[in-house]
Design a protein around this nucleic acid. Sequence first.
DNA 1: TACCAGGTAAAAA
DNA 2: TTTTTACATGGT
Length: 291
Amino acid sequence: MSVPLLNPIAPYDFLLSLRVAASFSPEASQNQTILRTAVRLDKKPLVMEVRQINKRPVQLKVSCNDNDYIGTIKKLAEWVLFAELNLRGFYRVSHRNKKINHIVKRLHGLKPMRPASLFEMAVIAVIEQQISLIASYRIRERMIKRFGDSIDGLWAFPCVETLAEAAVDELMACGLSKRKAEYIRGLALKVCDRSVDLNTLKTMSDEDVRQYMTSIRGFGPWSADYILIRGLGRTDCVPANDLALRTTVGKYLGDGTRLSPEKVRKVLEPFAPYRGMVAFYLLAYEKISKH
DNA sequence: TACCAGGTAAAAA
DNA sequence: TTTTTACATGGT
């Protein structure tokens, strides 16, 4: 019997991390104190819950509506919350820079949350290409409600098989362009026939992940780095051509205007190997300080 | 109404 | 080989 207790590596602020994750979504359900989400194991939709039972050191308790899965759910929660990340290396690097030192201190203990599966992450990347985040969330929501599974008031992201079998027209009905509908269906088909295995990304180098992902139709350089930082938590990766990032990095580390991708790379250079973490903290600060 | 928003592949030059 | 274009939705 597995003990459903989770001890993330300190420093860690669970509530702040939840709040930042929520701030990136339009629902903006603030003041959330527990993580409650639908996930999929063995294709079966389950409810995963994580709550804090101790502060200093932070200790979390994981629960699931089906106790048979509690061991796997705990591992999944560790992945989603990025429990194994040690922020101290990043803080040593960011401490040296006056421009962002105060921002990083304000967000002390913040870790990025990752989607539960890399397939979901890859689909999110496609949906978010080019259009505004708000529009992309509406599309994702329609897709989940059309192809996903409802459980206990929550929605589990669709099965790979379901999206592989979906007609391009049905996907377009969610608001996707024809191209994007083809990208998503194409990826799902490749995952189904095993010509693509997204789980192998976890053991690849950053550069190998870029090569692998950009060989798949619909995934360019932006998507590859977006998946690296947001889906895999590779702390040094940055989609330097990302529009929001170019604006935000320009605001806090540049001259206030939107920077070119080359300039973004140059400005972030001193923060290696935590360039992606700097980008994440700046975007998080930008979102949070609006409220 | 037109344009922009966390890009990409394919057509045209 | 390099440059231009089409694309879907939602906010301003």
